Simulated assay, not measured.
Amino acid sequence: MIEQTFEQLGLTPRESLLYQTLLKLGPSSIRDIAEHSGINRGTAYESLKQLQSKGVVSYFPKGKRRFFTAENPEILLSLAEDRRHRLDKTIETLKTTIIPNLHQQQPEYHHTNVRYYEGDDGIEWVLRDILNVVSQQDHKEYCVFSSKPIRPYLYRPFPNYTKQRVKLGINVKVIALGEGGEEAELSQRKWIKTEGSVDASYIAIYPPKCAIISLVSKNFPSAVVLESKDIASAQQIIFDTLWKML
């Protein structure tokens, strides 16, 4: 776990080893550092210079030699905070400048982007995509057609989906095909009564996308996600019209 943490801070495995070696040794010469770390002097020296540039290691002259010393481990928290600050700035730049500019480079014609997903991992991806897309919109709401047979498989890979949806302040309107379905916070539900059983199906409308989930076999779900403003708009009109009639 510590190696993964150091890697996220921008330190290589070798740099991590050298830093921890220095913490144990205290101020040390390059010869002692190389001996205790098992890294040859030339490689150790180059890595120590990298650590110094990152503020993790410092040195002082002692006679004709340099002695290196590890900074207090609290410096690692400063590194993490600095990386988080730079990442926040990158995210903001992506939102306000880069992504809008990239969208402008796309051709003007409309096309439908179709993606297929299978199994629990695929269904979880679709559910997370719904939350991600809707949470970024001003009007945080999406609409669903859902039948009872699909429900046991829908949230199996993402059991806390509803809690996440509510936490993000996302509303949902559900038209249930057949009986069943539980009331939930930030949720409105209406029913279409059917005679006999209905097939397992789930259609989520979250413009500019629509997701269709069904069962390929008895216990294996699959999904198709259509990204098209025109298709999503048409599906939204159908849903809204039917919603008012129920």
Rank of each mutant, 00 (worst) to 15 (best):
R128E: 12
G122F: 05
V144S: 09
G122S: 03
V126G: 09
V126A: 09
Q136G: 12
Y142R: 11
E124Q: 01
F145G: 09
H111S: 14
E108K: 04
L127T: 03
E141W: 07
D129Q: 11
P159F: 10
H110C: 12
K148M: 06
C143G: 02
P152V: 01
E108A: 07
N113K: 02
H111F: 14
H139T: 15
S135V: 12
R151P: 00
E124V: 01
N132S: 12
D138F: 09
R151K: 09
F145W: 15
Y109Q: 12
E108Q: 10
P152R: 02
D120V: 01
Y109R: 07
C143A: 13
G119C: 00
P149D: 08
P159R: 01
N132P: 00
H103W: 06
T112K: 06
S146V: 13
Y109P: 11
D120T: 05
K148E: 12
P107S: 10
E141N: 07
H111R: 09
I130M: 12
F145M: 12
R128Y: 00
I150V: 05
H110D: 15
I123M: 02
E124A: 05
V134A: 05
F158Y: 14
Q104W: 06
Q105W: 02
N113E: 13
S147H: 03
P159Q: 10
Q137Y: 04
P152Y: 02
G119T: 08
L131I: 11
V133A: 12
Q106I: 13
R115G: 08
T112W: 08
E141S: 02
I123R: 02
Q136C: 11
Q104C: 06
K148W: 04
E118F: 00
Y116F: 13
V144K: 01
R151W: 03
S135D: 07
G122V: 07
W125Q: 03
